[in-house]
Design a protein around this nucleic acid. Sequence first.
DNA 1: ATTGAAATATAAACAGCGTTCACTATTTAA
DNA 2: TTAAATAGTGAACGCTGTTTATATTTCAAT
Lengths: 217, 217
Amino acid sequence: MNQTTETELSPAQRRHLKVRQMILSVADRVFARDGEAGLSIRRLADEIDYSPGAIYKYFDSKQALLDELKEMFFERLHEELPEFDEADGDYAAFARLSVETYIRLALEAPHHYETAFAGTSERKPVELDAAAASAKERAFFGLYEMIATGIQRGVFAADLNALHAAKSIWAASHGLVLLMIHFPNFATAFDDDQAAPVSPDAVIRRHADFLVRGISA
Amino acid sequence: MNQTTETELSPAQRRHLKVRQMILSVADRVFARDGEAGLSIRRLADEIDYSPGAIYKYFDSKQALLDELKEMFFERLHEELPEFDEADGDYAAFARLSVETYIRLALEAPHHYETAFAGTSERKPVELDAAAASAKERAFFGLYEMIATGIQRGVFAADLNALHAAKSIWAASHGLVLLMIHFPNFATAFDDDQAAPVSPDAVIRRHADFLVRGISA
DNA sequence: ATTGAAATATAAACAGCGTTCACTATTTAA
DNA sequence: TTAAATAGTGAACGCTGTTTATATTTCAAT
């Protein structure tokens, strides 16, 4: 094993990493506001007071930079997902909260979320090993384990296949996020109940409830 | 009202429409194969033996052309969705088939489908009038009516709000389509049952079943 | 039939994009 | 002190969507 990574870095390497981080942070800010279209290498170079070519000393391509932004986002999202509080004990409520939180966090960074799922990712044998996988895959693995645990606890239907259920729940949550991003009025669309108009929050809550009820015992 | 549109058109107008249609059809072919990135104005111009600028005599912008391709696709999709066969009588089966068909048709034209929901559409008061809406919105309206009818028939839960249910079902179906597009191995991902590996078809069927059971009485 | 207007198609150009490359200046290690 | 590695630049390449001036053709009305 290595020594602590920090002491092994030369001043040059530390400077390199520092600039790299600075670029990432500025890029993340611009990307969050204006999306992929608004984040051009030239504009990024302007904002960090470097020439466009300089960025390629830190990143292989714009795509590589974007990939890192997306990975960072999904790590943040994954970290902020709730953990089950044994003292509380309401596992179904925990499941609902997990789904709701996923959707809400995704909606807080629509450009990040949307781009993370844009296009077709290379066909590769998906990693069953949670440590080697991307943050996206690790998040799915967490969902899978949540459902498997719920089945063991008797909260979710015993005849359920945890893997299949996890895929359906993920797909369903994913879809709501993207529809709400695409249609700014998705929550209130077609709603003619002017006395009690539907809020985005209510739609999210209902959806999560619908999904968790669907797998409950 | 007008006379039959055909007789009113001058030869020049007919030629104009003909070329327009030809451009659309070539663009649709290229777009289906190579997506938005593969469909550049210059390449399209090459394929139809015109100069790039000529295309702008027929379309305001590339975006306008793409919008038309997407609209055309959703009209096709909408038309190919099944209708309920009264003689059959199994309404739940009809609902399952509708969801399955939507997903399958979407997956047949992944570029069309994905682009149709890319980005944020302009915030506008969604049309409740089915005739004035886009094919996308009309398809949703069909789903809404399917669920409302199912409730009336006593097939779906009586305490269900058809509008809310339609939104959840649409979101859930939409999500599965996009995940399957993004992960070519979504169906078989994480699946360690090497004796009976999961097929895309099975995932779609299970998902549709999950959703329809969720709203059934 | 002729004339004037409208439509068509083109080539060239503009501004922007991601990326590469030759080159200089600086920093690092021996 | 010297040689090698690194940082950063400005210019260029080839691409993009789009606009414009221009020449040509088509069309309708005199």
